[in-house]
Design a protein around this nucleic acid. Structure first.
Lengths: 221, 221
DNA sequence: ATATTGTATATTGGATCCAATTTTTCTAAC
DNA sequence: GTTAGAAAAATTGGATCCAATATACAATAT
């Protein structure tokens, strides 16, 4: 007898599904900050009991995406301007280092992928897709750093501020500037200039942060 | 009516208690890597049902301290030498930056606290206390950086490798070297030399990492 | 004796039920 | 009409029960 080998993929648990869905909704801003999350309501939305929902909420809290209080429930966590500013500084610091480590290891495949995402970002008109393409562009380069732990940290940092970034990209000409900056970063990578790519990456993140903080200060005043 | 202000501390939930206890046990190496964690057994130890235990395990998994598999349970996560090496590099990179930012803000209280912990570390003979005092020393300085997010990241990074560090400190003369290095770091802080304190901190962490990696390579070979 | 099959046990994930407490609503007094 | 207090509803955390699956072990066939 001969059968094709099948990859019996472990079906995700209900808690995993709820967690992924809520994380995505918070990151993308579909759940506004301060919004109340009722266990019962979420359970009904996913057709499960409250048990997996509670587990999902507990994980989200560990990542700082929500806060919970007994008998009161969970609310989507908001960030102060100071916190947003700090996270951008941290990202700039770490991502510049990751880029510096990545450039010497970039191969043709990685560069081709980065070029593809770079073009895609410039052409995309749907704001909802900017965040994802932006991540794909940067990660296609970062991956060559061979630093999975660094990248995991960068990911959780991005998770915290993605929704603010989107608001800013949408409401200003941030996309055009990001697009220009992506192009020069890619250029530096193609030239194998690690120092330049690193500095440009740092400035790219800091620019976005400064612009966002200014925007929020104005908005919240 | 007048009442003295009372800090009504939110009683920790069972899940919180279990989480804190397990986290501490893993960090301090009381639960060896690869050890099986049975929900039922833990629940009995804490005199609760499996529900809060599951929540605690779920959180621990999010922080990379355990891995779980359906129908098989949870095991304390082990780290490869490469992963340990990477985390030390990351810590050195971030903690050096935190120190650089902290030095200009150090006041007399912070310096006095650091000096106290520094002496305490050198005099402590109980290996079980080294990790905690070491953290207290570094954090008493780092706190002045005004970068809570950076420090949170540093904390989770430390959580991952603390138990390996302890093994190394215990089995080599690592404590004496750490003590010497603490003293010169403190000296640089007292002199207000941010650049030097930053470089010394980086080297302090890298030294410990290199020493640990060499130790583990030997041990695992 | 060994390999294979079937069964019992162990273990996890989820559903349902209960206790504790907060929030809301209703009622009554002023 | 407004406010204070009591009752009702809502909501969370935890306990117990159930379903699904893996592992261990016994029984059986070759």
């Amino acid at each position: 007898m001969k059968l094709a080998a099948v990859d019996v993929r472990q079906a995700a648990s209900a808690a995993d599904i709820v967690y992924d869905a809520l994380r995505k909704a918070i990151i993308e801003g579909d759940l506004a900050e301060g919004e109340n999350l009722r266990q019962d309501q979420i359970a009904q939305m996913f057709n499960t009991s409250r048990i997996p929902v509670r587990e999902a909420l507990s994980r989200l809290e560990q990542h700082g995406l929500i806060t919970t209080e007994r008998y009161k429930g969970a609310v989507v966590a908001g960030l102060s301007i100071e916190e947003i500013d700090e996270i951008f500084q941290f990202r700039a610091f770490v991502e510049a280092e990751v880029m510096r480590l990545a450039v010497p290891n970039l191969d043709q495949d990685a560069l081709a992928a980065a070029r593809k995402y770079c073009e895609e970002f410039g052409l995309e008109t749907e704001p909802a897709r900017w965040g994802e393409i932006n991540r794909s562009f940067h990660y296609s380069l970062y991956a060559a750093s061979g630093r999975p732990y660094y990248l995991q940290i960068v990911r959780t940092s991005l998770d915290r501020i993605d929704r603010y970034l989107r608001a800013q990209l949408t409401l200003t000409n941030g996309v055009m500037r990001a697009d220009r900056e992506h192009k020069v970063i890619l250029e530096a990578c193609l030239n194998g200039d690690a120092g330049l790519a690193s500095r440009l990456t740092r400035d790219h993140v800091l620019d976005a942060g400064r612009s966002l903080v200014a925007f929020l200060k104005d908005q919240r005043a």
